[in-house]
Write a protein that binds this DNA or RNA. Structure first.
Lengths: 238, 238
DNA sequence: CGCGTAGTTGACCATCATCAACATACGTGG
DNA sequence: CCACGTATGTTGATGATGGTCAACTACGCG
């Protein structure tokens, strides 16, 4: 079973008035649509932060008032069962927004834990609220973000909770490959928590996939995917 | 495998300017917060409809422009895998809002199919959009609806996709019991699509649960739940 | 070097899928 | 009203999938 994630208070590097103009995910971000003048005031309220692997950005039930955007790296959203078991319910990639529930004053519904060194932008809900009153475009963006999260949740449910384990694993890899055919290969424990299998079984699958050429290691924690084979497996083929 | 649901064009009974004042879920509904004068104009645009079991209210990919609220009955939201298999990703109870994606002009992300005779309110997105411009309270309500849907999706994932099948079944029943201790008992096929098991296995579980007194049939498709036993099972007990 | 963590492997067993048979309920048309 | 057909639920036998427990290996780090 997964441990309670590191509770060491994450001590990220913070920057201020961060260089949003140069941000790689700026266009795709929450505020990509705002006109420059509106943006200026807001950007001074954006804090930039770097988190290391294992850092906990926030945890379930915490009541803070920040919304986040991921600039680089990977983050997992965890949810706990009454018995302490935990399941990864979503995997965040750059340009994803998370912690939206803070906008309604709710406490966070997940724990957000860093899987791969992450650069994150933090905006206080107060800053957004001010803008929200008279910016319909921002409203639309917020709704869209929510809808994307919901899409993801549903896709996660259908693709990663249906079918046999190797099929699910293939689908996960297909979701993660970048343009170069590379995908992150997470710890067996995390893979287990995503696919609803034990770490041992996750390990066996990784070995199998390597053996039949579906994946090839290129560096620790990163592999090249043979999309042809993976697609066949994902579709239920042998 | 589940069949493609009835494509017979559902021919619900429609009413106009429906008696919203008398609606049992009015307070909990999307517009419960609106002041009476604002509400009046809107209500004339609300259509009321009754659907029979098996009716398809909308299907995946359809592009219409209505948002719905469930007044009574049960509705399942389906999502399809590439191979045609389908999984139930959410179960709607009275006062739930669905089809929110229409507000952004997106096509529906699910198929909505009636499980138990359903009374539904339909509001065109145009009607909402007009109001949306200058009603912050409605914005908040919309975000809240979205957040609730997301909550549900995550809960569905953790509770109904983790652990052994009887444990998942217990959790489903616990989610469904009303104040009288009664819960709907859906078809074995639907249960299978919710719990990610075969209809046969769902059947065996129902029989088992009846045998050891966890549930007792009170009428076709409805059972009384022994919450004590169910809670023990849901927690992983024997 | 010794230690702790993560990954791998093997043996065995529980859970669940599969396939086939049978039961039951529900409608339709004779 | 009954005979028949179809859809749905139940049951059984068998095998595949994945869980469990334990041993062992590989790697990083003090």
């Amino acid at each position: 079973m997964l441990e309670i994630p590191n509770r060491h208070e994450a001590t990220p590097t913070f920057g201020h008035g961060s260089r949003c103009e140069a941000c790689p995910v700026r266009q795709r971000s929450l505020f990509g649509i705002l006109p420059a003048d509106r943006l200026d005031g807001l950007l001074r309220q954006v804090e930039e932060a770097e988190y290391a692997v294992g850092d906990v950005i926030y945890s379930t039930g915490e009541r803070r008032s920040s919304v986040f955007t991921l600039r680089s790296g990977y983050i997992k959203l965890l949810r706990f069962l009454p018995d302490g078991q935990q399941r990864i319910v979503r995997l965040l990639k750059p340009s994803c927004t998370f912690g939206l529930e803070a906008l309604m004053g709710d406490s966070y519904g997940h724990s957000a834990v860093v899987l791969e060194r992450a650069a994150v932008c933090r905006i206080s809900t107060a800053a957004i609220d001010g803008l929200r009153r008279n910016t319909p475009a921002l409203h639309d963006q917020l709704m869209r973000r929510w809808q994307i999260a919901l899409e993801e949740a549903d896709a996660w449910l259908t693709e990663l909770s249906t079918g046999k384990a190797p099929q699910r694993f293939s689908r996960l890899l297909c979701r993660m490959v970048d343009a170069n055919g590379l995908a992150p290969l997470f710890s067996r424990e995390d893979l287990g928590a995503m696919l609803a299998v034990t770490p041992e079984h996750a390990s066996r699958m990784v070995v199998d996939f390597r053996r039949n050429g579906a994946i090839v290691d290129v560096s620790p924690g990163r592999c090249r995917c043979n999309v042809t084979i993976l697609a066949r497996l994902a579709a239920g083929g042998e």
